[in-house]
């Protein structure tokens, strides 16, 4: 059986069932929404799976959706199975206040700084991270700048009027 999106989806579904909250395939990349509490189990299972071999963490970041109450932050993991050339994107939704998720540093050493970056920008707490502190911004900063409530431009500026362009 070919190791493809359908196979990956089916195997995860068979093994984790109700912890899979949804799936789609935008641009051919299998995207699975998972129960944040089962992150370590699922990633560890994918890592050790004899056929899937998801042993490469390509990317880790977060997205803020302020209008989704209770699940504002999506932590997005891109895993890659180099032997099969198959990517899987995992998404775990957390509340913006007090949202926390397990750290992947026990599985991927490379997750360390990626999680620090995500904490720095979004304030996501990664449980079990060895050194969760800011990485790109200064330590004294008291907010997480990539959250949507922080407008990029100084709102007191008067020299730019965007009304005419409908924004």
């Amino acid at each position: 059986m070919a190791i493809d999106n359908a196979f990956a989806k089916q195997s995860i579904q068979e093994h984790f069932g109700s912890d899979l909250l949804g799936h789609e395939e935008p641009f051919g990349l299998l995207t699975i929404e998972i129960n944040p509490e089962k992150l370590i189990d699922i990633v560890g299972w994918l890592y050790n799976h004899p056929e899937l071999k998801m042993t490469y963490l390509t990317d880790l970041c977060a997205v803020h959706y302020p209008e989704q109450s209770g699940r504002e932050i999506a932590v997005v993991y891109h895993l890659h199975s180099l032997p099969n050339n198959l990517r899987v994107r995992l998404k775990a939704f957390l509340p913006v206040a007090g949202g926390h998720i397990a750290s992947l540093t026990g599985i991927f050493s490379g997750a360390n700084w990626m999680e620090r970056e995500t904490f720095d920008f979004y304030g996501v707490q990664f449980d079990g991270h060895p050194q969760l502190k800011r990485i790109l911004n200064m330590d004294e900063m008291d907010y997480h700048p990539l959250l949507k409530q922080y407008a990029l431009e100084d709102e007191t500026r008067e020299d730019k009027d965007d009304r005419f362009f409908g924004r």
Binding site: T58, D59, G110, W113
Partner: peptide, 26 residues
């Protein structure tokens, strides 16, 4: 890598760069 989320607006909703330097320097 470029991880781009568009919500149909004039700007990206979210754009994340997978920067190889950042990842391997650790």
């Amino acid at each position: 890598g470029y991880y781009l989320i568009s919500d149909g607006g004039r700007t990206p909703y979210r754009l994340h760069f997978r920067r190889p330097c950042f990842i391997y320097y650790q």
